[in-house]
């Protein structure tokens, strides 16, 4: 799994770490049951603070893609499949757009329900 970050990017470094792991899950280089590198080792390799890496891992846990267990580190969960990662990534984009537009949660969920009810013939219009 390649984890590349760009400190010059406006995206927070923890988010970049999470995005790289998500890509790894999406393209199948890591799958359910696989252990992610220890946060301390990854932080050393990338020259970032260990809390930055842990923030990324916690984000992945909140998305249900990894499980964080004391002593075992971060392990890709059963939901950590290519589909799961794609869904988490799309949900993240939706949430970012909703925040930018200042929408509240109910409006966003309504919009998602509407979109889901629309016939599959024009999903990407």
């Amino acid at each position: 799994m390649l984890i590349a970050i760009d400190p010059a990017s406006p995206v927070p470094l923890g988010d970049q770490v999470a995005a790289a792991v998500r890509r790894g899950i999406e393209d199948g280089t890591v799958g359910p049951g696989d252990r992610l590198p220890a946060a301390r080792d990854l932080a050393t390799s990338l020259g970032v603070n260990v809390h930055t890496v842990l923030r990324g891992y916690q984000q992945l846990r909140d998305e249900g893609l990894v499980e964080l267990r004391r002593g075992r580190g971060a392990v890709v969960s059963a939901a950590g499949t290519a589909e799961g990662a794609e869904l988490a990534e799309a949900a993240g984009r939706l949430a970012a757009a909703a925040r930018r537009l200042g929408l509240d949660e109910d409006d966003v969920l309504d919009a998602v329900r509407q979109a889901l009810r629309r016939p599959a013939a024009h999903p990407r219009a």
Binding site: L2, A4, T29, P37, S45
Partner: peptide, 15 residues
């Protein structure tokens, strides 16, 4: 080579 922006950092790891 891989594409890595100037100042970008990268690690590759695999079991």
């Amino acid at each position: 080579r891989i594409d890595l922006p100037v100042g970008g950092r990268a690690v590759w790891t695999r079991v």
